[in-house]
């Protein structure tokens, strides 16, 4: 368990305030655009398409006009105790000791999809097809993220290249330490209502370390022991109850 604490390095995490999330989808689009994610002609095929950050839509189950819709953006949870890592036979996915981010090396991946089976959050996607950037759209591909090939698994990296970008900038300015918010993933930057807070969970000065102490903070499927570094916040009890598989009467 000591390994998970990762007390020396950074432990990047995210808090998503579901009361602030309006379901606009910008995080998904910013992510796709930042990370050279390919687009299928039929994106409605959710078993074949690729999205590093998917949005789930849930309702409180009440009848009209008491119905309420809530959206849950789901990036990779970057678990402190990741179920995907030990199952990889090719050592293609690891937990980075410096950042706590779960890496995925596409050139190393053999496409067995054990990690996908192991991940309880469906955060990973498999390239069933060659990446599709047809007719000129390969011109917007960013060299900061390597495009994937058919037959490998990919997933959210917390925009790791943005960490490298921020570090290079800091180095250019003669600094080694990053300021808060100097490195944020594309989805955090894009969120128009600032529903997502990003930072170092090991740094008590970062806003996020305070936010996760809130009584409204929770994680998805917390009782599996995966220790996700992506937290959610909501004042709605019905929503919190949805975050894990509780027996009747068990929640609160």
């Amino acid at each position: 368990m000591k390994k998970e604490e990762n007390s020396k390095g950074n432990r990047y995490g995210m808090v998503i305030d579901l009361d602030k999330c309006t379901g606009c989808g910008l995080c998904t689009i910013a992510c796709a655009s930042e990370n050279n994610i390919s687009v299928l002609y039929d994106e409605s095929d959710k078993t074949r398409n690729i999205a590093w950050l998917q949005i789930s839509m849930v309702t409180n189950g009440k009848e009209f006009p008491e119905t309420e819709v809530v959206y849950i953006p789901r990036p990779c949870m970057q678990c402190d105790n990741p179920p995907c890592v030990p199952v990889c036979p090719a050592t293609a996915t690891r937990k980075d000791p410096n950042t706590g981010i779960i890496s995925q090396i596409y050139t190393r991946c053999i496409g067995c999809r054990y990690c996908m089976a192991a991940c309880p959050y469906h955060a990973r996607a498999f390239n069933w097809f060659d990446p599709l950037f047809p007719e000129g759209m390969d011109r917007y591909l960013s060299p900061e993220v390597s495009p994937r090939m058919r037959g490998v698994v990919e997933k959210c990296t917390f925009c790791h290249h943005r960490l490298m970008r921020a570090k290079s900038k800091a180095y250019a300015e003669g600094r080694r330490d990053l300021k808060e918010n100097e490195y944020i993933p594309a989805c955090v930057e894009a969120c128009p209502t600032k529903a997502i807070t990003f930072g170092d969970l090991n740094n008590s000065e970062h806003t996020i370390s305070q936010l996760i102490k809130s009584p409204h903070a929770f994680r998805l499927l917390e009782r599996l022991g995966t220790k996700p570094k992506v937290y959610y916040m909501s004042t709605k009890n019905w929503l919190k109850r949805m975050a894990d598989n509780y027996l009747t009467g068990e929640f609160k």
Binding site: A30, Y140, A186, P192
Partner: peptide
């Protein structure tokens, strides 16, 4: 080449926020 569109936080109209269409403008 243009590779990514982001909102301008110092612009008086939108202060960093843009819409999905604007974000996907490169397509």
């Amino acid at each position: 080449r243009a590779v990514k569109i982001e909102g301008r936080s110092e612009y008086p109209v939108n202060q960093g926020a843009i819409c999905p269409l604007g974000m996907a403008g490169l397509q």
